[in-house]
Design a protein around this nucleic acid. Structure first.
Length: 213
DNA sequence: CGCCAGGGCCATA
DNA sequence: TATGGCCATGGC
C-alpha cells in the first residue's frame, strides 16, 4: 500500500468521516473559498450571515460595491475580496451558472479558467473544484504544507509539487481528496500549529519510525 | 499589547 | 523562480 494511503487510513480511523466545508450550495462554497483566504472560518461565517439568507450570484453582481464590502468586512481584506467575489461570480455566470455543466467539463480546462479569474489562485481554485463541483482536484493549504513539512515525506516544496505528489499517491477520487484534506486540517489544528503537540497524535508512530531511520 | 488565520497580487532582482 | 510588501478584521 502507498504511504499516503496508510496515512489516510490512520487519520480516518482516528477522526472518522469528517464532513467538511459547511455550505448549503455550490455557489456558497465558491463565496466561502474566496472569503476564507488567510482568514479563520468563524469570520467567514459572520460574513455569510450578513447576507441575511440572500446569497446569490445575482445579488453579488447587483449590490453596490460599498454595500458588498460592508457585508464581508468581518473577513478582512474586504475591499480586495469584494472585487474577487465579483470576478469569480462573473465567471460562474459566464458558465451559465450551471453547476452540472461545469462538472461535466474536463477538470484541467475548468481549473485553468479559474486561475485566470482575479483573486483565484491555486488553493482557491482547487477548493472550488473539489468542494463546490466534486471534481478530483487535491487541495493544498497552509496545513497541508506544514503537514508534509513535519512528517518526513518528500512531497515537494511548491504548491504544485505537493499537489501532484498527493494526486499521484492516491486513487483519483473526489470524496477521498475531500476527506483527506479535512483530516489533515483537523490533525493540524490539534497537533501541528506553531508548536508541535505530539501527545495523542495518531501519527506519532510514523514520526518515531521516521526518526529512527 | 502583538501575533496570526483554511491567500493572492504585484514589484523587484 | 523566489522573496517581500501589501491588504484588514477578529480572537486570543
Amino acid at each position: 500500500m502507498q504511504e499516503l494511503e496508510k496515512i489516510y487510513r490512520t487519520l480516518y480511523s482516528h477522526y472518522g468521516d469528517l464532513q467538511w466545508w459547511p455550505a448549503d450550495t455550490p455557489f456558497e462554497v465558491i463565496v466561502g473559498a474566496v472569503l476564507t483566504q488567510n482568514t479563520v472560518w468563524t469570520n467567514v461565517e459572520k460574513a455569510i450571515e450578513r447576507f441575511d439568507g440572500n446569497l446569490s450570484p445575482e445579488r453579488i453582481l447587483d449590490l453596490p460595491v460599498e454595500e458588498l464590502e460592508e457585508i464581508i468586512r468581518p473577513t478582512g481584506y474586504f475591499r480586495q475580496k469584494a472585487q474577487y467575489l465579483r470576478a469569480v461570480t462573473e465567471w460562474f455566470m459566464n458558465c451559465g451558472g450551471d453547476v452540472d455543466l461545469i462538472k461535466s467539463r474536463p477538470l484541467p480546462e475548468v481549473r485553468s479558467e479559474l486561475l485566470r479569474v482575479r483573486g483565484v489562485g491555486n488553493e482557491t481554485a482547487d477548493s472550488i473544484l473539489l468542494y463546490a463541483f466534486d471534481l478530483p482536484s487535491f487541495v493544498v493549504d497552509a496545513y497541508t504544507m506544514r503537514f508534509f513539512g513535519r512528517y518526513p515525506i518528500k512531497a515537494g516544496k511548491s504548491y504544485m509539487e505537493v499537489k501532484s505528489f498527493c494526486e499521484a499517491g492516491l486513487p483519483r477520487d473526489a470524496a477521498l481528496y475531500n476527506h483527506f484534506h479535512a483530516l489533515i486540517v483537523q490533525n493540524g489544528k490539534e497537533h501541528c500549529k506553531k508548536k508541535m503537540n505530539c501527545a495523542g497524535c495518531p501519527l506519532e508512530q510514523l514520526c518515531e519510525k521516521a526518526a529512527a531511520e
